[in-house]
Amino acid sequence: MKSPVSENVSVTRLGLRAAMGAMAMFLVGCTAEPLPEIEIGLRNPTVPLGGTSRFEAGRFAGDWQTVRCLGECERSVTYQVATDGVFLRRAGDTLTAYSVPAPGILREMGGDSTLVVMWVDEGFRTAAVGDADGRWAAVLGRSRKTAPDRVKAATEILDFNGWDIAKMQVVK
Rank of each mutant, 00 (worst) to 15 (best):
1 M>T: 06
1 M>W: 03
3 S>Q: 06
4 P>I: 14
7 E>T: 08
7 E>H: 04
9 V>T: 12
10 S>V: 06
11 V>M: 10
12 T>M: 15
14 L>I: 07
15 G>P: 00
18 A>L: 14
18 A>F: 08
19 A>F: 15
21 G>C: 07
23 M>L: 15
23 M>K: 10
26 F>L: 09
26 F>N: 02
28 V>M: 11
36 P>M: 03
39 E>F: 12
42 L>V: 06
42 L>R: 05
47 V>S: 00
48 P>C: 02
51 G>C: 11
54 R>P: 01
56 E>K: 12
59 R>E: 10
61 A>N: 10
65 Q>M: 03
71 G>A: 04
72 E>N: 10
72 E>L: 05
76 S>W: 09
79 Y>M: 07
82 A>K: 09
83 T>Y: 00
84 D>G: 15
87 F>D: 04
89 R>C: 03
91 A>C: 06
91 A>R: 06
93 D>K: 12
93 D>M: 12
94 T>M: 05
99 S>D: 13
100 V>M: 15
102 A>P: 02
104 G>T: 05
112 D>W: 04
113 S>T: 13
119 W>R: 04
119 W>P: 00
122 E>N: 09
123 G>Y: 14
124 F>L: 09
125 R>D: 12
138 A>G: 06
140 L>G: 02
143 S>R: 14
149 D>P: 01
150 R>N: 09
153 A>F: 11
159 D>R: 12
163 W>Q: 04
166 A>R: 15
166 A>I: 03
